[in-house]
Simulated scan of single mutants.
Amino acid sequence: MQDTDRRHKEARSAGERLIAGHVKEDPFAAAFKATRMPMIVTDPNQHDNPIIFCNAAFERMTGYSNDELIGRNCRLLQGPETDTRTVDLIHDSIARGQDISVDILNYRKDGSTFWNALFISPVRDEEGKIIYFFASQLDFTTVKSREAELASARHQAEEAVAKNTAELQSALLTKTLLVHEVDHRVKNNLLTMASIVKLQARFTKDEVKKQTLMSVLNRIEALSTVQRKLFTLDDIARFDVADFIRELVTDLVSAIGRDDIRLTLDLSPLLVPAVKATPISLIVNELVGDAVARGLSDGGGAIHVVVKRLNGHFMIRVEDTTTPVEPDAEAAEFGQLLLEASARQLAASIERKAEGSRRVVEVTLQVDEHQENEN
C-alpha cells in the first residue's frame, strides 16, 4: 500500500513539474486542459509508465477521477473483451518509442465499454531521449455501432442475394439442361438427315441428281456447324460470325480436295444475336458454294472472304477469281432464291460486281449495337 502511495505521489509530482514548466498564459497548456478531446501524458521513466496528467475530457470519458487515474497505467481501461493483439501492438510501439494509432475496446469505471480511437506519440527532449508519452483518445462507439448495424444489414442482404442467386442458378441449370437436350436432339436429327442424303447420293446414278443431293448435304452441314458452334459456347445467346465462317469455308474448300484453290480470310471478330445464325450460315454457304460451282472445282483459282464491322452494320464479302464455267441453271436459280430469302430474313442488302474472271458479292446487314452488346 505504501509503495502504491509513493508511486502515486511521484506521478503527481511529475505532472505538477510538467505543468509548472508552462506559464499560465501558455495557450498550448490551456488548450490541453480545456479541449473536449480526451488527452493524457505518461512518464516512461517511472515504473510502469504511469499517467502523470490527464484532462477533464479524459475523466468524463472513463468515469475515473483525477486521483484515481494519476499514477496508474492505462491498462486499467482494459477488460475481458479487449483484443490482446491490439494491446501487444501498443506495448511493442511504446517499447520501440514509435507512434501508434489503433482502435481498441476499453472499459469505463462502471464496467461499460466504449470504442477508443487511440493515438500515442513519444515526446523527446533536445537530446532525443523520450521523456513523456502523449496520448489522445476519441470515443467512436456510436460510429462502431452503426458499422455493426451496417455489417449486419449487409450480411442479411448478402444472404438474401446468395439465396436468390442459388435459386436463379438452379433455374438456369434446368433451362440449360433443357436447351442442351433440345440441341442434342436437333443435332441428331441433322445427322440423320445428312446420313440419308449421303446414302441417297451414293446410290444415285444420275450425275445431276447426285450434285443436287450434295448441295442439299452442304446446306445441312452448314446448319450443323451453326448448331455445334452455338452450343459449345458459354453464351448461347450470341453468335460469332467470324469464327463460324472460318470453320465453314475451310471445311467447304477442303472437301473439294484441290490444291489449286487458294483460300484467304480477313475476319474481324463479330458477335450477333443467335437468332441470326441460321440465315447467315445459309448466306455464306450459298456464296462460297456458288463460287465453287462457277469454276473453282474445275480449274482452281482464289477465294477471299471478308467479315468487317462498318458503323452499325457488318459486311460479308466473298471474292473469287477463276475461269468461269456455266453452272447448272436450276441449281443456280435455287441457290439464288435461297440466298435472297435468307437476306430478306435479315433485312440485308446484296451487291454483286463482276470484272472479267473476278467476281465480288457483298452482303450488308444492320446490327443493333445495343442488341449485340446485351445479348
Score class of each variant (00 low, 15 high):
Thr4Gln: 14
Leu18Glu: 04
Ile19His: 01
Ile19Ala: 13
Ala29Asp: 14
Ala29Trp: 15
Ala30Cys: 04
Thr35Pro: 07
Arg36Asn: 08
Met39Trp: 04
Gln46His: 15
Phe53Met: 09
Cys54Ala: 06
Asn55Leu: 13
Ala57Trp: 01
Phe58Ile: 05
Arg60Leu: 09
Met61Asp: 03
Tyr64Met: 04
Tyr64Ala: 02
Ser65Glu: 12
Leu69Cys: 10
Ile70Lys: 05
Gly71Tyr: 07
Gly71Phe: 03
Gly71Gln: 10
Arg72Glu: 05
Gln78Lys: 08
Gly79Ile: 13
Pro80Asn: 11
Glu81Phe: 13
Asp83Pro: 03
Arg96Met: 03
Gln98Trp: 10
Gln98Pro: 13
Asp103Cys: 07
Leu105Cys: 01
Gly111Ile: 11
Thr113Phe: 10
Phe114Met: 13
Lys129Cys: 10
Phe133Asp: 01
Phe140His: 04
Val143Gln: 11
Ser145Asp: 14
Ser152Lys: 10
Ala162Trp: 01
Lys163Pro: 00
Thr165Trp: 11
Ala166Ile: 07
Ser170Gln: 13
Ala171Leu: 14
Leu172Lys: 06
Leu173Gly: 06
Thr174Cys: 10
Thr192Val: 09
Met193Gly: 01
Ile196Cys: 10
Lys198Ser: 09
Arg202Gly: 09
Lys209Gln: 12
Lys210Gln: 07
Thr212Gly: 13
Leu217Ala: 11
Leu217Met: 08
Asn218Ile: 12
Ile220Gly: 03
Thr225Gly: 10
Gln227Trp: 07
Lys229Pro: 02
Thr232Leu: 12
Ile236Ser: 05
Arg238Glu: 04
Phe239Asp: 00
Ala242Gly: 06
Ile245Val: 09
Glu247Ser: 14
Thr250Arg: 08
Thr250Lys: 06
Leu252Pro: 01
Ala255Cys: 09
Ile256Pro: 00
Ile261Ser: 02
Ile261Asp: 04
Leu263Ile: 05
Thr264Phe: 02
Asp266Asn: 14
Ser268Ile: 07
Pro269Lys: 07
Lys276Cys: 14
Ile283Cys: 00
Asp290Glu: 12
Leu296Tyr: 03
Ser297Glu: 14
Gly301Arg: 03
Ala302Cys: 15
Leu310Glu: 14
Gly312Ser: 12
Ile316Arg: 00
Arg317Gly: 04
Glu319Lys: 07
Ala329Arg: 09
Glu330Asp: 06
Phe334Cys: 07
Gly335Cys: 08
Gly335His: 08
Ser342Tyr: 09
Ala343Glu: 01
Gln345Glu: 10
Ile350Val: 03
Glu351Lys: 09
Ala354Pro: 00
Ser357His: 14
Val361Asn: 03
Glu362Phe: 06
Leu365Ala: 06
Val367Asn: 02
Gln371Arg: 08
Glu372Gln: 05
Glu374Pro: 15
Asn375Gly: 01
